[in-house]
Nucleic acid binder design. Structure first.
Lengths: 204, 204, 204, 204
DNA sequence: CATGAATGAGAATTCATTCAT
DNA sequence: TATGAATGAATTCTCATTCAT
């Protein structure tokens, strides 16, 4: 009974989800400019004309993809946050990056390449949005370094994330996943090396 | 005086150079896909129809831009090669990167963003070309590290260049040139820290 | 009444048909190379941009015109096939050709001129397709000659069709429809002259 | 001595000849519309910009090709005219056609395809010119048939030439040189069969 | 909401023709 | 004359967005 009422709405939400997922994937693989709405519609198995009931413009789909990346990031960090040691959390992050080496070698870091492409735009709307996703990652990393008792957590966070972005770009440009492995290992070693002050109890 | 003789040929070569320079600049600022031939023609002050006398396709202009980046790189490394100490050469490279912080913060690393965008293409032609430019930088850096007597020069080269690409991307995404300064400083410190074996005479 | 239901789909199919018809006509009159998509769109009263909804490339429109010629041919031969005597069928074909004398004198044989133009292309795609249409006519004629009991039906079919193509080209080049009449009459006389063996019953 | 004076002019005449020859060949192979001036210039090994000193427009080059075809035809018929028997002359013509079977199978009859293409034009200038070349061939054939004492020489000439055009087109469309051989043989047999009245002395 | 169809504003590319030297 | 270099009008094709049903 309630089905007949909620079904259509549920269907709609499902389509929206499928479109978002398709956009995230296709935009990452082909880039924003080379991706047509038809590409996304096809990947989501939604008729082109119907897309506009969920996303009024192409940019809204890009935004949805950015939101998806944020959600992925949150999910990842939420999982890591369950680890008691901030150092282990950071190492877990690097390991997650290394796990995505093949995709990175083929298409680069999803967020990074998206940000790079959007930053070419004259209007500063979506590029700011892309910056926010990266900032979110930086903030999380910074919290971990701070918890570790490092005096310059923001700087270290930049170093860590820049390392990820750099290795992804190189792996992509050279089409070599091993770069992800090599640099990832280096980052983990680096994290291991970082001295932690005697008593830096975890802050809630 | 002799100009009046070489003028016609010089004119043509000049236009080609202007087009190449314009392409390099505009493609960096707007990205490949968002740049129209008209954009490049306008920037070079050349009628659109005339562009095709020099470059048969848009892709050839992209290729010319890649060649330009290679040339810039060669010029830079040639200058650095005059320094006697390989460590100083590497530090000089990082300083050059830091010198370009404002451009990087606005548009990213010219080569890196180009490579990232081209890597989204299905056909592997120009993206391979872009990879070559980055490889060239890696090779140069590797030579310096080897000359420094380091046991793993290729790995170190990757770390250095990845550091550059990462800091450029972050600086660009966050629109913050200071990231270039901060990370650049870190890289220089890192280079200073690298132990050099007792006697590693420069190899011609 | 039911129209109101099928309208949307019918509309699309209708446009496609209009475009095909327009393409067939205009391509015949102006030739493939001299015909622009705008010409066809105008003749079909369809906005240019919309043409691509139905035909992805200009070549697909040419192909549609070829298919149209095939359909016309099939229609014609289907009608002739109702005649009991294969000789009458062949004569009916020639008469149909003569009936088109004015168009032939102005623009040549639609299929023949199309084939001639397409054969100039380096890539062998559409020209093969054009050859198929002519082959189809040859095959039909061959069947009639065989049914007539002639020992060399394929040779005779070539002679007949070559006669048609030749007279069309001459009529066109000299802008003289009378050539169609004169040569057509000769072909009919020739068909009448052909001896038929005593008992050559029609084969289903 | 006179060389230095006549050389430039001779050179010019030579270039004109080369351009005409190149135009004849390339226009036959690629068709008028698909042939660019650059194509012809390249084939003639003449700089593009220089073409215009010899031919003010592309159409003039087409006209030159038509004139070339006329010249070829005249040369051919002049040779045949040395034969005492008009029937042999006609048979010689057919044999010449058969000799060109491979070219015909690939590109069609040079004059015929040119005429067919030019006839698609709205303006009636070059197409009339093309008609003239064919008319010239018809006239020559007609003279032979008349000399043979046939009562309807014009009709027979049309049949002969139409036979040639038809077999060329079929050979071309089906890419089969054997059609030229088969139909050529038929034409020769046909010419042999034509009864000649008792006393038809050759007319100067 | 759903959907096929429409629309029009570009974009890349081609090429005959002209020009400056 | 000779020639590389313009030039601009045309042409094919793409696509985000909108519309009618």
């Amino acid at each position: 009974m309630t089905d007949s009422v909620t079904r259509p709405r549920a269907r709609g939400a499902d389509k929206r989800r499928r479109l978002t997922a398709a956009a995230t994937k296709v935009l990452h693989e082909q880039g924003v400019e080379r991706t047509t709405l038809a590409d996304i519609a096809r990947a989501a198995d939604v008729p082109v004309g119907n897309v506009y009931y969920y996303f009024k413009t192409k940019d809204e789909l890009v935004q949805a993809a950015l939101a998806e990346h944020t959600a992925h990031l949150d999910e990842l960090t939420a999982g890591l946050d369950r680890l008691p040691d901030p150092r282990d959390r950071l190492k877990g992050l690097v390991e997650a990056w290394m796990g995505g080496r093949d995709v990175a070698a083929r298409y680069g870091c999803p967020t990074g390449t998206l940000a790079a492409e959007l930053d070419k735009r004259a209007d500063g709307v979506l590029d700011v949005e892309a910056g926010r996703v990266i900032r979110r990652l930086l903030d999380w990393a910074e919290r971990q370094f701070r918890e570790l008792g490092r005096p310059d957590p923001d700087r270290l966070a930049v170093t860590l994330v820049a390392g990820y972005q750099g290795m992804s770009l190189l792996a992509n440009a050279l089409r070599d996943p091993e770069i992800m492995t090599g640099e990832g290992t280096r980052l983990i070693r680096w994290l291991d090396t970082l001295p932690a002050p005697p008593s830096a109890p975890r802050q809630a």
